[in-house]
């Protein structure tokens, strides 16, 4: 029964997400129309002062001479068919370009989520269990500082210390391309490259979830149900782990869901710093190249990503909290 309802819940959420994703596409499409210059001028400019007729010819070929609304309509129609257009800059279909860059970003995001949520929950509980001890002070002070650190700067500092001075980790890239690692060796190589970018991107969120978790655990330990558990003769440890932890997880999970969009944004900076071949870097490059088809494609995909992660978060939430009914009758 519950499984069936859950599937229906997910389907409903997916349906509800479609207008949101299309809205993101429309908004960005219209915004990009305001941008100075288009692919034609950039290409022509690079060709070195091409004659205006040539620019017009390029425009006609790219369909840029049609009215904006017609362009938008065509674009939306194509998106529904999963055709994201053609990147004239890279001379390749957008979909292929994006999919190539998708998995490095997913890898980075997944590792970051794992480290920040997992680590944050753990550190938050440790701090709360030893409230006002040296462990708590250490964790809290570290969290306050990490919370104020600019991502790109800590990335550079990590490179300075761990790559340049100590030479423990590579400075950039996702793998050692010239080494032609295969199989297990390749996995190890990628993991080695992943360490610094993950730490960089995680640090802020790790601090955020640590602080949130600590505060919620402390708050929940003062809740009446915790007093009831105490009156039943449970140890403080059992109260925290068995009763408080699950209740305190809920706000952290909600927050993690809200933060997914921001996380994806942060990956632009981190990917630029570490030359990580992901979507963020691609977005940055395509923006300066005025490769708007590619940029729109990236926005479309990242909106999809955010929506999907949010649905996953909602499902986890529903599984954790019996008070949330999913489509059942009251």
């Amino acid at each position: 029964m519950r499984g069936l309802r859950l599937i229906r819940f997910i389907m409903t959420r997916l349906l509800q997400a479609i207008p949101v994703v299309l809205g993101v596409v429309v908004l960005n499409f219209l915004l990009l129309q305001l941008a100075p210059g288009d692919a034609a001028t950039v290409l022509a400019g690079e060709a070195g002062g091409a004659p205006p007729e040539y620019v017009e010819q390029l425009r006609a070929r790219f369909g840029l001479d049609k009215p904006v609304l017609v362009q938008l309509g065509l674009y939306l129609k194509n998106i529904l068919l999963l055709d994201l257009g053609f990147s004239f800059r890279n001379n390749a279909p957008v979909l292929g370009l994006i999919l190539d860059r998708l998995w490095p970003t997913l890898l980075l995001m997944g590792a970051t989520l794992l480290v920040s949520v997992g680590g944050g929950v753990m550190l938050g509980v440790i701090a709360a269990l030893g409230v006002r001890t040296w462990r708590d002070h250490l964790i809290s002070v570290a969290a306050v500082i990490a919370y104020a650190t600019p991502l790109f700067w800590i990335g550079l500092m990590l490179i300075l210390v761990f790559s340049i001075r100590l030479d423990w980790f590579p400075t950039s890239g996702m793998e050692d391309v010239v080494a032609f690692h295969e199989g297990w060796a390749r996995v190890v190589d990628i993991a080695h490259h992943l360490v610094l970018p993950t730490i960089t991107l995680s640090l802020f969120y790790l601090a955020l979830y640590t602080r949130l978790m600590r505060a919620t655990v402390l708050e929940q330990r003062g809740a009446e149900y915790a007093t009831t558990a105490r009156a039943k003769g449970l140890t403080e440890r059992a109260i925290t782990l068995r009763h408080v932890l699950r209740n305190a997880l809920l706000p952290v999970i909600t927050m993690a869901g809200v933060q997914v969009g921001a996380l994806l944004g942060g990956s632009v900076v981190v990917e630029t710093v570490f030359a990580w071949p992901g979507l963020g870097q691609l977005a940055y490059q395509s923006l300066f190249a005025r490769d708007f088809n590619l940029l729109l494609g990236i926005f479309f995909l990242s909106a999809c990503l955010v929506v999907i992660v949010n649905i996953i978060v909602d499902v986890v939430y529903v599984l954790l909290d019996p008070r949330i009914r999913v489509g059942g009758k009251t």
Binding site: A262, G265, V268
Partner: peptide, 9 residues
């Protein structure tokens, strides 16, 4: 839903 930093860029 829009990744905020990319949108700012």
């Amino acid at each position: 839903t829009i990744p905020s930093f990319i949108f700012a860029i």
